[in-house]
Simulated scan of single mutants.
Amino acid sequence: MSVFSVPSNPVEEKLEIEQSTILLVDDEEYNLDILVQLLSVKNYRIRCASSGMEALEIIQNEEIDLVLLDVMMPGMNGYEVLREIKKSPRQFLPVIIVTALDGREDRIRALEGGSDDFLTKPIDKYELYARVQTLLRTKHYYKQLISANQRLEIEVQNRTIELQRALQELRRLNEKLAASHREIVEHLSSAAEFKDPETAAHIQRISYYCGVLARGIEMDEEEADLLIQASPMHDIGKIGVPDHILLKPGKLTAEEYEKMKEHTLIGYKILNDSESPLLKLASEIAISHHEKYDGTGYPYGVSGEEIPLSGRIVAVVDVFDALTSRRPYKEAFSNEVAYDIIRKGRGNHFDPHIVDVFFENLPEILYIQNKYQD
C-alpha cells in the first residue's frame, strides 16, 4: 500500500473512531454526568476534568482526540483553556465549546480563540453525536496523515541511505577504475624504458610539467588530471622503433629520421580504439605532440588550434626536457640555451600562449626538474 493512501475500510474506520478518547471539561458534576451518559453509549473512552488546570494536565500526559469544553468555570475559564490548548505544539486537537451562552459575540469569541465547533446548552443529543463524530473523523484522518508522513519520512531516509551507499560504491568502483588506468599507464610507460634507459625520469618530469601548464591556463581540474596521467605515454610508440635508430649515438639519416617519426603513429595505434578517456587522451597526445604551430611538424602537418591542446602543451615541455637532458646522440644543453630555443620557437614551433604560461611558471618547472633527475 502506498504511504499516501488512506485506508477505506469503513469497519476499521468506524472502530477507530469509536475507540477515540474524549475529554469532558466542566466544573458542574451534573453537566459532566449528562455528557458521560450520552457519549458512553457510543463506546468512546471518556475522561473528565472539573477545572481548566486539570484539563490541561490530562492533555499534557494522555492521548486525547477531542475536548468538550465548558466556558463558565471558576479560575481559568473555557476561553483561557482553549487558548492554551491551541498554542500547544502538540498535534491537532479539536475542541467543541459547550456553554449556556448563545449570543453572537460568544460564538465569535470561541471561534476566534480556535474552537472547532460550538454547542449550546441544553444539548441536543443528536446534534452532539453528529458534531462529535464529524470532528473525530477529522482527527482520525489527521492522525492517518501524520502516520503516512512519518512512513514517508522513514522511506525517504531509507532510500537516501541506499542512494548514499550506491554512490559510495560507485565512487569506490571509479577509484578502482582510475587506479587500474594509472597502472596501465605505468606499465605502458615502463615498456618504453626497456628501449630507452633515459625515459624513466623523463616521463615523470613531462607529467608534472604538464600539470603546471594545465593549472597555468586554468584547465578544468578533471581534464588537467587526465593530462597529467596521459602525458607519460606520449612516446610509447618508440617501442616500435628499431634499436639501431632509437639508440644511435650520432645524427640520423633522412631515412632513419622518417622511421623515427613513425613512433607517433605507432603510439596512436597502441592507445587508440579504447573507451577509456585516459587512453583516448593518451592516443591524442601520442600523435600530436610533434606537430608544430606553423604546420611544419609531423605526422600530418596540422597547424594552430587544429593541433589538440594536449599536444600543444606536451610539445613545449617535451622539447624543454629533451634539450636539457642527455641523449645517446647529444649532451644536455643548459637551461638558458633551452629558454632561448623555446622563445625563438614561440608562434612557429609552439603555441605562443603555452610558451608564455611556461615562462610565467618557470620556478615551479625548475623545482620539478631538480627533484626528478635522470
Rank of each mutant, 00 (worst) to 15 (best):
L173G: 03
R172K: 08
L170H: 03
E169P: 03
Q164D: 14
E175C: 03
N158S: 15
A130Q: 03
I146P: 05
L173R: 14
R131T: 00
L152Y: 12
Q168A: 14
E162G: 10
H140F: 06
S147L: 11
T138R: 13
E153L: 12
H140D: 05
T138H: 12
R137F: 05
Y142M: 04
A166E: 15
Y129T: 00
V156T: 07
L170V: 05
A166P: 06
Q157C: 07
L170A: 10
L163H: 04
E162L: 10
Y141R: 07
R165Q: 14
N158L: 14
I154A: 15
R165W: 11
Y141G: 07
A166Q: 12
N158Y: 08
L173Y: 06
Q133R: 04
K143Q: 08
I154K: 14
T134Y: 00
I154E: 15
V156P: 04
L170I: 08
T160D: 13
Q133D: 13
L152M: 12
L173W: 04
Q157G: 11
R172P: 01
Y142W: 08
R151E: 07
L135S: 02
V132T: 02
Q168N: 08
I146W: 08
L145K: 07
V132L: 03
Q164L: 15
A148K: 05
N174I: 01
A148Q: 05
E127H: 04
Q144E: 12
Y142Q: 11
T134A: 09
E155K: 11
E169R: 11
R131G: 01
Q168G: 13
L128D: 00
N174G: 09
Y142A: 04
Y141W: 03
R159F: 13
L170M: 11
